[in-house]
Design a protein around this nucleic acid. Structure first.
Lengths: 190, 190, 190, 190
DNA sequence: GATGAATGAGCATTCATTCAT
DNA sequence: CATGAATGAATGCTCATTCAT
């Protein structure tokens, strides 16, 4: 009953793998089609260019992260639980997909691509921003400048994702808890 | 009295510029030597390869950041002042040098270069870690897992540097203060 | 009552159009089948290869020109009228079909295809040659070498066809008359 | 003492050969550089693209033909001698260079390149046109429309060049004389 | 030291043709 | 009959690197 993956999907997967392993520039179409077990012509049947493949991958990523956030982090949760869930979700999704995120990031870097509105509000950032604003309005969070909240939250996520990726050290429950504790209650001894 | 910059220095500067503008892969030796106003042979007199140039640039960056930290963030400062100074210093140095940092980061990505010990402890990270450990020992900071501190601090730095770079929004004094306030005193209303 | 053109005819027409617009090499099967509104498989049902299509087109052209000549230029006409009619017919037929002629010419060029007997005696050339020989025998034309006659006659045709095609200037009645006058009576003042 | 031909010249010659043998589209850079005994990079050092090489070749051709005409066909010659010399010169130069002319012609065809002013007045055409106009003014030629003169003259040239190229039949002295005789005195028996 | 001509491996992309449905 | 997904050989072009002057 289970369909075989279409050539297009195989190419998408292979592209992600290879892009991640070697970066966009160093990834070759030859290698991608080899891994996807298809001919080079097939690649160009589905994607106009190497860049197109990257963009399609990004689209998928955007959708995935929003879906996860909505499922796991309802605004209705108490602050602490929301942050725990949000950090966890971001770290998990990014961990699964960071490969793409990093590839895209590096590529934008290199091509000097101008940011689209989508890029200015990277997947999930808006969701988090809305939560922060609402929570401040409801006095659940202190009235500090919003970017400060985003900085520590997103920053922490990236730190852990990056550490995982570069050093192979996963985020532990302890660290997750401590980080949320630190953000909510501060670093100073009470 | 002031010497003309040596060919080597011109190449180093040109390399940084072009690497940043187009990324490592897309930067061409031709463009670098053009901008440095010298012949292609000269490039290879001073640098074994394109990669060598990148590495030399990185070395310079490492030294710069350590020097800045030692000058501006003595451990003797009170916690709040230390954090303000540290965030400021990191943001400033990275802002000036992030170009290189980003290039290096993207390049490592692409080449799958294994992390050296230096990379595992990126410039300044160790300095900050030592401060945190010492401060915890002195009861100036709460006894939370060290990575949590590093995550919010480094994370915030990267968030602001990145925002500056991508969106052209500088870190304001207000945001800096709020961020340190948030980290020290927590996000929850007292 | 009028049948829809068959797929084969649609392909023939589409091929002529595209060959003419972009040349044989640059014409793609994809574009041809698109214009003919049919699938790529259908193309190969009717034509063994791209080259086959070109050859079929050429055959059609050969037949067209002979038919026109026989209809419009009976040997029985007086010399002047024959030449007027012949020049006119050639220019007209070539103008309508030169597209093909030029494509074929260019293609032969490129493939270094050896001339078939047909090519050595291009459509109509033989017809004209026979007329010249007969007219010389009948003393209606001076006894000069036959190629000289063919050169000025065919040459003039090509000049005008080419001018029409390249510069969009049509052959005027005046020019046609003058050309025949020049060929028959010479360029020198009497 | 004789200089070796420069790589650039070798490429120019090789390009002409291969373009001629196989046409522009079918000529490959690989083959050109092989024949010129140099690396592919060298090709691109001297020519931006395959098309550039073709254009450079054309430039050379233009210059060659004008120089030959000026040397061999002074306006001061008597009409008959001028025409003999002009036909001869054109046929010779084209014969030597027709390869290029044909290649260029076919290529323009295929790319639908718009005619530049140069193309509208192909090498030598203007020279001949000026001669005709002046001779008509001086009553040395009949007052017929100029294109008629150009048609028979240029047409004859192309006929003979083409015949030589396609069938390997050279223009004989007899044919040359007869052609000029025909053009000057007409085809009709006196 | 300094130069830049020469090189060729490497890569993205195209397109005629096949064949299973 | 008709289709169009799949293929891969072929090709233009790039660019890091070498080396003779």
């Amino acid at each position: 009953m289970s369909r075989q993956p279409s050539k297009k999907d195989l190419l998408l997967e292979a592209g992600l793998d290879i892009f991640f392993e070697k970066g966009f520039e160093r990834a070759t179409i030859d290698e991608i089609v080899d891994r996807a077990n298809c001919g080079k012509g097939t690649f160009y049947r589905y994607f106009q260019s190497k860049e197109t493949l990257l963009n399609k991958l990004e689209e998928r990523f955007r959708k995935a992260i929003m879906q996860e956030l909505e499922e796991n982090c309802p605004f209705s949760l108490p602050v602490e639980e929301f942050l725990l869930a949000a950090l966890k979700t971001f770290v998990r999704v990014f961990k699964v997909n960071h490969r793409l995120g990093l590839v895209k990031f590096a590529h934008d870097q290199q091509t000097g691509i101008k940011l689209s509105e989508d890029d200015k509000n990277p997947a999930g950032m808006i969701y988090l921003e809305n939560y922060i604003k609402q929570s401040i309005a409801e006095k659940k969070l202190r009235e500090l400048s919003v970017p400060s909240f985003k900085a520590v939250l997103f920053g922490a996520v990236h730190f852990f994702v990056f550490r995982d990726f570069k050093l192979g050290i996963s985020l532990s429950e302890r660290e997750l808890k401590d980080t949320v504790d630190l953000i909510l209650n501060g670093a100073l001894p009470s």
